[in-house]
Structures are given as C-alpha cells and as structure tokens.
Amino acid sequence: MRGVPYLELEDLPALLERLEHYYDAVPRSGARPENFGALTLFVRAGQGWPFSARPALGRRGEVRAADVHRVRLRQRELGVPESFEWVAETAPALQAAVEQAGLFVRACPGDGGALCAGQQQPVGKVSEIAGVGALPAARRRGLGLAVSAALVADARSRGVETVFLSAATRMPPGSTLGSASAPWPPH
C-alpha cells in the first residue's frame, strides 16, 4: 500500500511497548485500576462495556494462576464477564496461568491479522457506519456487532447525534450477513 510505512522487525519491541502503554491508558479515562499481582482489572465508573483484566504495565515477574483466581473472584463480585486480554509477545506465560485457573483461551487473531473491521464517517452531527466485515473463519461470533457497537460508541463520544448503518445489497461470494440477538443501538 502506498503511504503506509513498513514495520521493520527490529522495530517490533518498540511498537509492542507503545501498544502496551495504549492498552493501559485507554480504560483509565473511564475506569479505576485495581491491581492483583501482575494483573490490572479496570473497574468501569458508570455505564458502559466492562473492561477485561490485563497484564499490569511495567509488571515485574510472571502472572501466576493465583493472580488470575483473585481477579476472577473480583469480576464475579462486580457482575462482569470473567475475561482477560493480552498480547502474547509481551506476556507469553499468561496463557498458561489463565488456563491453569480454569479458563479457555482463544487466540485472536493468531496469524497476525485483524479478524473484523469497519469504519464510521462523521460529518457534523451525523455519521455512517460502513464496510463492517469479518474474515470467513471469524464469522458468526458477533464480531461485526462488536465492531459496529464500538463505532457507535466512538461516534457518540465525539458528539454525533445520528448514526446509521449502510449495508451492501450484493455481498462478495462466500460472505454472509450475520445476525445476533442484542439490543440496537447499543447503550
């Protein structure tokens, strides 16, 4: 692609470090961090989708299954999903700790690429959601709904009052429009 810089392999550690700082910073604007050893659980202040627990920024040592158990207990107290997220390259031992604590791990994406994407196109107080699509292997998992909901939330946070969804009438061969049972628009 013209205009898109190519990432050199030696730049990967610096990129991963920037991403870890980003993953830690995003929830802090609307959540309170609670530390559990080498894990941080961001507890949302007010309404909104709950955050997953993740490795603490600047942690020392590996995450232990006991840390995962403590986070899961707190998530149950809060009535939020028991979920964890991390970048495998920055916390390679976390998967074993999470599995040892009794959770199933699904690698996303696993091959280094995105599973689902979409875009919103705001103009003034109106925005169109368009181009939402998932890879064939990732369909029927609710990813399109999740991406759409995130785009709506982003538009609303930027002052957009009207959001609408455009869908193609003709889909490429092998593609499907998924359905999910969820309220729309998401709150």
Rank of each mutant, 00 (worst) to 15 (best):
V132W: 01
E99D: 06
S179I: 04
R74P: 00
F42D: 09
G131E: 09
R54V: 02
A66G: 15
T169L: 11
S175Q: 14
R72G: 05
Q100G: 06
R141P: 00
L78S: 08
P122F: 01
S148V: 00
V152W: 00
P55G: 10
A66L: 15
D111G: 03
R28W: 00
P5F: 13
R54I: 02
E8Q: 09
Y23E: 15
P55T: 12
S52G: 13
P13I: 10
D67K: 13
G58W: 11
L12E: 15
R28H: 06
V98Q: 10
Y6Q: 11
M1N: 11
A153G: 12
A134N: 05
L145N: 07
A180M: 04
A25V: 02
A134V: 04
G142P: 08
L19K: 06
A114L: 13
L12C: 15
R106E: 15
L94A: 14
N35L: 00
A153W: 01
A97K: 10
H187Y: 02
S179T: 12
R156L: 11
R44T: 02
T90K: 10
G102Q: 09
L115Q: 09
L165T: 01
G174A: 11
L41E: 11
P183E: 08
N35M: 00
N35P: 00
A93C: 14
A155I: 02
R2I: 05
G102Y: 08
V71Y: 11
Y22F: 15
V123S: 14
P172Q: 08
H21T: 10
V98E: 09
A91F: 03
L9M: 07
G46H: 01
R141N: 00
V147W: 02
A153E: 04
G48Q: 09
V87C: 14
A65Y: 12
T169D: 06
G124E: 02
A31H: 07
P92R: 07
K125N: 04
L151C: 03
R32S: 13
W49E: 09
S157K: 06
A149Q: 12
L7S: 14
L15R: 15
V26F: 05
E82V: 08
L12Y: 12
W86L: 04
L9I: 08
V43L: 11
A146G: 08
R74Y: 00
S29R: 15
A38W: 04
P33G: 15
L16R: 14
E77N: 02
W86E: 01
A117S: 06
G118D: 07
R32F: 10
E89V: 01
G159C: 12
G102N: 07
V68Q: 11
F84K: 05
G131F: 07
F104V: 00
L15W: 13
R139G: 07
S157N: 08
Q121T: 12
V147N: 04
E77L: 05
A88Q: 15
